[in-house]
């Protein structure tokens, strides 16, 4: 049995109310969306807020709607199941809908939200444990302690971004709409992250993600998501890679993006690798050769650490395999890439 720490629960019905409730307390408060990350973390005493501001009553934060300019607005409270089963999203942004479909298991996708997935805490096998377990180890820098058990003598926490949809949103150039005490802001998701496993975001935990905006896709945009995990369900990624390819009328790639996750504190964009794909044509040798080069480069740039479970050398060996398969899936309009 894992008990939650004591806290009070607020149920605001507007964004402004939620922000006010977040600030009108001396102690710590936390937003609660689906609760599938916050609740286990509170049970493990990784967070012990005095107040939880539940977002389920804020209408503005729900729904998936196409805007007049062809962009898509996804309310932060849209569930992963909503995202994974949305037909237009699946066609226009396959990497995102595939990533959402591969998050954990059915019940957790019914509860967990896209906003909560973006704002997910980083993960580490020495951190996502009960208080008793962590105390037996002498704690670690991210919570209650001073040492790092991944990098001996390390001064920076390297807990891993483990949110499957983050790399997909990165390849799509998503914009995040935040609300805070001074109003609303919009930032490209690429600007959200910082290389600090203790808090890997540049916004404070008191800022509310209201919606995720996806730009209109190009005429022939393709994508896929590849996820390595132990079982075909429930498990967090041991490595994840999202792909976007934009093809011109002749079928030649004119733009591409790759982004990996489950490595270190930030989702990891592979810009040089993406550049190798431009000018090649799926179905022709130029593309096949580029895929091999990209897979080799990805293996150089992605260095899994013993921060999350799974043998890190095996995870490293799988980087090129999953990169290659995900690239081929994106080009062929298939995916997701996973082992079950």
């Amino acid at each position: 049995m894992l008990r939650l720490p004591k806290f009070e629960v607020k149920n605001p019905s507007t964004v402004e109310e939620a922000i006010a409730m977040m600030h009108a307390i001396d102690g710590e408060a936390r937003f609660l969306a689906g609760g599938t990350d916050l609740n286990p973390n509170m049970k493990h005493r990784l967070f012990t807020p005095e107040r939880v501001v539940a977002l389920g009553g804020i209408e503005e934060m729900f729904g998936i709607t196409q805007q007049e300019d062809g962009s898509m607005r996804i309310g932060a409270m849209a569930t992963l199941a909503n995202v994974a089963s949305h037909a237009e999203l699946g066609l226009a942004y396959p990497a995102l809908s595939q990533a959402a479909l591969l998050v954990s298991g059915p019940q957790l996708r019914n509860m967990g939200t896209l906003g909560g997935n973006v704002m997910l805490d980083t993960r580490c096998q020495w951190y996502n444990q009960t208080y008793f377990w962590r105390s037996a180890l002498g704690f670690c820098m991210k919570k209650d302690g001073t040492k790092c058990h991944v990098i001996e003598g390390g001064s920076k926490c390297v807990a891993a971004a483990s949110n499957d949809t983050a790399p997909a949103l990165m390849t799509l150039g998503a914009e995040l709409e935040f609300a805070n005490a001074t109003g609303r802001t919009r930032m490209p998701i690429a600007d959200l992250w910082q290389a600090d496993g203790i808090w890997n975001k540049k916004v404070a935990h008191t800022e509310l993600l209201v919606a995720i905006h996806l730009p209109k896709p190009s005429a022939d945009q393709r994508g896929a998501y590849g996820k390595l995990r132990d079982r075909g369900s429930i498990d967090f990624p041991l490595f994840g890679i999202a792909i976007r390819l934009d093809l011109d009328a002749q079928g030649t790639i004119f733009d591409a993006a790759l982004c990996a996750v489950a490595l270190q504190a930030r989702p990891w964009p592979l810009k040089k690798a993406a550049a190798l794909l431009c000018g090649t044509k799926p179905g022709e040798e130029s593309f096949t050769e580029a895929v091999e080069q990209v897979a080799a480069l990805a293996a150089k740039q992605c260095r899994p650490m013993p921060n999350i479970p799974g043998d890190h050398e095996y995870r490293h060996a799988m980087v090129s395999v999953y990169t290659k398969r995900a690239l081929l899936a994106a080009a062929n309009g298939d995916g997701p890439v996973h082992h079950v």
Binding site: L32, V52, P106, N110, M111
Partner: peptide, 8 residues
């Protein structure tokens, strides 16, 4: 289907 252990 929803997990009651993670729902307040």
């Amino acid at each position: 289907p929803t997990l009651a252990c993670l729902s307040l």
